[in-house]
Amino acid sequence: MAESTASVSIADQTESAGRNRATLARLRREVQLRYIAVVIPLILYLLFFYAYPVIAMLFRSVSEPTWSLTNYSHLVQTNVYVHVMWITVWISIVVTICTLILGYPVAYLISSVTTTKSNLLIVLVLVPFWTSILVRTYAWMVLLGRQGIINELLQSLGIIDQPLRLLNTRFAVYVSMVHILLPFMILPLYSVMRGIDRSVLRAAEGLGARPSAVFRQVMLPLSLPGVAAGCLLVFILSLGFYITPALVGGPKDLMISVLIAQQVDLFNWAFASALAAVLLVGALLIFVIFNRILGVEKIFGEVRS
């Protein structure tokens, strides 16, 4: 009797556990469905307004004027486009490195001070971010011009006789692009650094590491996901820059987006599509490389926390 009761109750328990599991699974599915339902509008939006045009563009690059890769072979065979691609990549690399060098200490500072101070500093980083790129580019034109503030100052101090050519040079492109893109470097860096447990740093110090060793062996490795996310953002945004190099750059500072616009003007839309496709594939390639090295979850997962 006692045995049978026990066996029944065990069976009951198994049964109810099974029911519970089923209920749990059902609930989980419902929750998942709900999540999916929430993102469906965005997915539809992206499919319709983003994926479709991009696919149409890629399609055009191989389907016009006839089904072939002529647009791409023209691109590869014309030195100009390869040259301009290279200029674009080079400018992007330099800008990424400069923003990293300038942005890292700032992010470190913001993440180490008290909340009140860090909020204020974040605002200081964000204010230029809220100002339009055109305005910021014009501000650089005023600063760097032949009769700009920098030249006038240097002249009045007697350091130079003739105004230096600062505007309409590659230097001006670097300076203004670094300025514009700096927040894109600082913010991911900051959000990763904020998540780093400071006691780890203190522990390293307590165990006798010099400050440089603490930075090299603890801080730097822990902040790497932020470095990767920041570099990725800045580099990919730099690839597509248009306005700034056009306004402050010298004659030879052609970036690929300028040539794409030129081809659109000439109604060579298929060729423009091929150029854009190469830019897109290039950006994706960079993403894949970063993903291989650091893992996409690590880059964006850490940023989110």
Binding site: S132, I133, L134, L237, G240, Y242, A261
Partner: peptide
């Protein structure tokens, strides 16, 4: 993103 919208406008 500000940049993209801006880019379009400039275009």
């Amino acid at each position: 993103m500000d940049h993209d919208e801006f880019f379009l406008r400039f275009l």
